[in-house]
Design a protein around this nucleic acid. Structure first.
Lengths: 336, 336
DNA sequence: ATAGGTAATGTAATCATTTACATTGTACTC
DNA sequence: GAGTACAATGTAAATGATTACATTACCTAT
């Protein structure tokens, strides 16, 4: 592999001039620049980014911490991140944490060992270990969808989950539903509280009874949707409408409801959350909340790059627009 | 950020000793190692991986080139890659190329500029530009699923697509199907030729007519499946069974067939390829070929790491086991 | 007691760049 | 024609680690 020195020799200039010809073309004369470019082509020279990074202190890389790579919704966010990063000359390191704190520590630590410049976190955990907590203060980091729980405030890109769930609840009530259940994802996060809060606020306004027994689940997966339905079906009092806290759960739930010989939405209406691609293609097509996933990813990049460049952030909370997508998994409540 | 020098001061030793205490603990005495560990904890020191990499010439990072991040099947592979890489102390850089040669060049070039040590390519294109082609010779690179087309031979991890499609064809013929169509993905790749070859070989053996008119498509997406069905349905001669070259296409196809008022498999049987998670949950559940996606990812990491370490590869072609998963999207042919 | 071996540590070169500072050269002004 | 300004380039220090080589100290065998 040829280094800058080979180019120097070929072009008959100093390393400084070669470096300038590449990073700061206006500082070298047209003539020498051409000479250098020719030498570069001839030698097949490629600047060693490591050497460059060590001097400038910038790696032009960000790491994305994902709790669950199988979730297509995260994928969409990551796609947005990747594109925006690329446009800004940044690379994206993938950190599949599986929600495991040890892995989160490891990936988050990359910013401390100069491997990456910033972190985009798709989970609510504080990814640094106790050891590193003090150092985390100045770390460029942003959370998407979830809100990071920590003493330090980090900017967040999120949906108005509360309002979105209010919209879903009103939609179902407009079809005459009175008996609701929730199949939730992880329940120790802020978005869970926001979503649940949105639902219960509407139910309270409408004087519809609801209690925590009607909340099942604990994981954002198809299997959790199946399992959730089975639990609900084993109960005496059965819901006529189920809020699933993501589309994967809803897909599992609908599948399982049909297995029980019941109709969606004839017997039970189901709503999801996220609007992943396939939700429009299952049977029945899913009523859900559309999140602008790839835009959220782009926004996250924008914010974390601003932090990296030490620009001032106007807002530390960006709220994205949701959209209620009415498809065919919701309909009139039975016996109403 | 504290450097190795601060640790030296605190521990009262030289940089060499600190470095050795971390990378080669057996070379320093127990006593000084403890002293150094204490100093590290005290200072919050994190080794700068850039400085380390520049000296060792290893970045401990590989880049994955993905043509299409929205495809859940690739995701599964990437998940396998990420896990295997992590276990070996490697990080994964994500390169969403969208099949764009310019982006491929850019990402592939990372190995030439010391940003990554190797490449895992999920597409069939030769990712280097003409400029860099000569340098590509020694680059650690492996292709998964597809086979890279180039003068240089790279190892490949793939399925026996030919045999898999033979199995699908035989399965459908056993249900009495005689009129087939194919909704393909990109048709200029080796896997397309292998898969098509598998199908036509069986049809030839059974004296079943088939010609290129019955091949539609050109992209691996849900939309391509819908469009493909519409083209086929506009024809005079309609198929009773459709081979979709991935599950996304099959999902779109089934959805569109039902829109036309036809039944799957009553009127038309549909098979997919890949066995993505959701394929078991659509209506009807999809008959498809299961690929061990995450194992393929793991295998790819194994192979590329061997190349990086300049170990000799026993095989330059790893063929993975497929499995025909019979679900409910296939059944007896109409009028048979 | 001396030579020789070994374990532990230190010194300083090295990796490939960037960049502060120094130098050179040219053109322009009075 | 001396002085000034500025553009272009060069020199060498610096980035933060690793590591070849040098040194020291101590132990053992003769």
């Amino acid at each position: 592999m040829s280094t800058i020195k080979k180019v120097c020799q070929l072009a008959g200039v100093s390393t400084a001039t070669v470096s300038r010809a590449l990073k700061n073309p206006s500082m070298v004369s047209e003539k020498t620049r051409e000479k250098i470019l020719k030498a570069i082509a001839e030698s097949g020279y490629r600047p060693n980014v490591l050497a460059s990074s060590i001097k400038t202190g910038k790696t032009n890389t960000i790491v994305v911490l994902v709790p669950n790579l199988s979730n297509p919704f995260f994928l969409k966010i990551i796609q947005g991140i990747e594109q925006a990063a690329q446009e800004s000359g940044y690379s994206v390191l993938l950190g599949d944490t599986q929600g495991d704190p040890a892995r989160e520590n490891e990936y988050a630590g990359m910013v401390l060992s100069n491997r990456v410049d910033g972190i985009i976190h798709l989970d609510h955990s504080f990814p640094f270990s106790d050891n590193d907590a003090a150092l985390a203060e100045a770390v460029p980091m942003v959370s998407v969808c979830e809100r990071i729980v920590s003493d330090i405030k980090y900017p967040v890109i999120e949906l108005d989950n509360y309002a979105a769930c209010r919209a879903l609840a009103k939609h179902l009530i407009s079809y005459g539903h009175q008996k609701f259940a929730v199949i939730a994802g992880q329940i120790d996060s802020q978005i869970h509280r926001d979503r649940l809060g949105g639902i219960t606020s509407v139910l309270a306004e409408e004087n519809i009874a609801f209690n925590d027994d009607m909340i099942v689940g604990g994981e954002y997966s198809i299997e959790a949707g199946e399992k959730g339905v089975n639990i609900l079906m084993s109960r005496h009092e059965k819901p006529t409408a189920i809020f699933c806290f993501n589309d994967d759960i809803a897909i599992g739930a609908i599948h399982e409801i049909k297995k029980h010989g019941l109709k969606v939405p004839g017997d039970i209406s189901v709503v999801g959350f996220d609007d992943i691609k396939v939700s429009g293609y299952i049977d029945p097509p899913l009523t859900t909340i559309h999140q602008p996933a790839s835009e959220m990813g782009r926004k996250a990049v924008e914010v974390v790059l601003k932090q990296i460049r030490k620009e001032v952030l106007k807002k530390d909370r960006e709220i994205m627009q949701f959209q209620l997508v009415e498809r065919e998994s919701t309909g009139l409540a039975k016996n109403s």
